[in-house]
């Protein structure tokens, strides 16, 4: 029974929604609120496709009970762009060919965004380490890492 009232702020917009106690944040975002940009794959916390940013931190939304997130500020891939302007990471992913099938892309973008917000000038090794929890089967990771590195290099010190 969906009887737990919560408020989620998603990409700056408040949503009141009643959730079930075992409902995952991912399901609420996708199925109830329509933020389908975040993809569901393994449901075991391995692949990282469902990564969103909650209160500034990357979070595995398939392993997150929605009921625990009352009042949380959530950013999904749809919330990366502002006023029609893409996030530098989105630009870099396009420029570097970091996207193939694209199913892992939102998860990588959110992991990378949370990471760069915390550590704007990482080394390549630190970038690789930060992306350890996201699986990509198409690219072999190189161009994704290149893209993140490019954004880091361009951001003001």
């Amino acid at each position: 029974m969906a009887n737990i009232d919560i408020t989620l702020n998603v990409n700056g917009k408040d949503h009141r929604v009643a959730v079930r106690s075992t409902e995952m944040l991912l399901e609420v975002l996708r199925d109830r609120l329509g933020y389908v940009g975040t993809n569901k794959v393994c449901a075991q916390g391995i692949c990282g496709a469902c990564t969103v940013i909650v209160d500034g931190k990357s979070t595995t939304s398939c392993l997150a009970l929605a009921a625990q997130f009352d009042g949380a500020r959530i950013i999904t891939v749809e919330g990366l762009e502002h006023d029609g302007k893409l996030d530098p990471l989105q630009e870099a992913f396009m420029k570097h060919g970091a996207v193939q099938c694209g199913y892992c892309t939102p998860g990588f973008l959110m992991s990378a965004r949370a990471f760069l917000n915390d550590n704007p000038h990482p080394t390549r090794t630190e970038i690789i380490d930060a992306l350890r929890g996201n699986i990509c089967r198409c690219t072999g990771y190189k161009k994704i890492i290149d893209a993140v590195e490019d954004v880091a290099a361009r951001s003001a010190r």
């Binding site: 389908v36 940009g37 975040t38 891939v77 762009e81 396009m94 060919g97 996207v99 199913y103 892309t105």
Partner: peptide
């Protein structure tokens, strides 16, 4: 030439219509 993919704008914005979506 390394022309960017013509579907990439949808994919980086989370707008690609995969079956699940």
């Amino acid at each position: 030439h390394s022309v960017p993919r013509n579907d990439v704008l949808y994919k980086v914005r989370g707008k690609a219509k995969y079956a699940a979506n």
